[in-house]
Nucleic acid binder design. Structure first.
Lengths: 225, 225
DNA sequence: ATATTATTCAACTATCACATTGTATAGTTG
DNA sequence: CAACTATACAATGTGATAGTTGAATAATAT
């Protein structure tokens, strides 16, 4: 029985599916995929942002490549990696939703991390999103510029967290400011909102990433502005 | 930097996400999840259907349980496992679509397997589905009875593959017969259609599972009939 | 050409996961 | 309550995977 053609077929098929499962089985690879979901990047840049050694980063990227989740292209001296298919983002999103739903540890960890930080409690997302769409608020994209250029909320202005302090003067004091970054587990927007509030601005955090918003029907703007 | 609270937070979060990835990283566990997607089952039944030893089956199930993808309940002598959340099915479906999309090996393996089998080539699915919905065809659920009872296409009759032969007389010769089972990689419906055709019936295979059809808006019937 | 830089490869060690066994536990039957 | 059965757990050997280091490769710049 176990050498029947049926069994062989099933084994071969599940073996293939497991290739993708294996690619998702390491925290670093998931982080790399999350970063690549925001913008294409070189090995070096990915290593820098994840805190991994370049060699380690390269190896994980190869693992992702051999599972066909990412693609690589050599541009001169640098190899740029990118997400191979929009479905990869969908898979990551589903994984995230399921994890949030089933793993109490995630909520627990997030709560502990946010504990003591003022006013990071979730706002009414639907309502906030309407105001973003209507342009009633100033929207800040606090991610690195590459990520902004790869895709951002229409009307949002790019203010990388590192530059926020020196650009405070250009921000409105009368209008509410909404900061977003890569998603609920990205801390850039948390830090941005903390800084803004400390300086007397009215600021809230939008937990979603551009791509989360895209699945809710918001268009994505691409390019310099 | 790498001991900052931010880094610790990220590591903890991605560690959690990776729990689910790890659970999906073995072919046997994926097969177990697929079986459980169709109906709850005992360890013994799962071992029998997958060809794994009972001990091995139990271990994989524990791995799935500790990732919270399945739940277990003891009924008398048996422990029954079930999918913990409908989102698990969604995740599996997304994984499958992505794999089909990106991994040429899957199509290759499937093609090789179907090669030589007459008329398993895909029919116009949308049109077929309409006829199923409209009740214009006889629909056969050729999975084991437990799976039928856990959820089936409305109007479908339960004819487990093993019983098909002796129930041929009850099937219409003038109307087209549609057989379905667990999805595109389940061979039960293939074997059913082969048998039916060999006996002169007009039969086609529906590649989707009940749950695939559910996401396309078809209701699921539950229970004995 | 040579040096420089980014990336990959190769070798090594440590850790982790797998399947197989055998054993323990817990319910059920006699 | 003893015997039995289904299931879970534990220990083992084996193989795969991760991270490190240092060398090799490849594309540019000098």
């Amino acid at each position: 029985m176990s050498f029947s053609p049926n069994r062989q077929f099933k084994d071969a098929i599940y073996e293939q599916f497991a290739r993708i499962g294996k690619a998702l089985a390491h925290p670093s690879r998931l982080e790399l995929l999350d970063l690549l979901s925001q913008a294409d990047r070189t090995v070096e840049a990915l290593g820098r942002e994840t805190g991994l050694s370049v060699a380690s980063t390269s190896q994980h990227l190869q693992a992702l490549k051999s599972a066909r989740l990412v693609e690589a292209e050599k541009h001169g001296l640098y190899v740029t990696y990118r997400i191979a298919d929009p479905l990869v983002r969908d898979l990551l999103a589903t994984l995230r939703v399921l994890a949030e739903h089933r793993l109490a540890e995630i909520e627990h960890t997030t709560r502990r991390f946010l504990d003591g930080r003022e006013g990071m409690e979730s706002v009414d997302k639907a309502q906030l999103l309407e105001r973003v769409k209507a342009g009633e608020v100033t929207v800040l994209d606090v991610r690195p510029p590459e990520e902004y250029h790869a895709g951002h909320v229409p009307g949002a202005i790019s203010v990388p967290l590192a530059e926020l302090e020196q650009r405070l003067a250009t921000l409105p004091r009368d209008q509410e400011i909404v900061a977003y970054c890569r998603g609920p587990y990205c801390v850039l927007s948390i830090q941005a909102v903390e800084l803004l509030r400390a300086r007397g601005f009215k600021a809230v955090r939008l937990e979603d990433s551009v791509y989360d918003l895209q699945t809710r029907g918001l268009p994505i703007a691409v390019g310099r502005e």
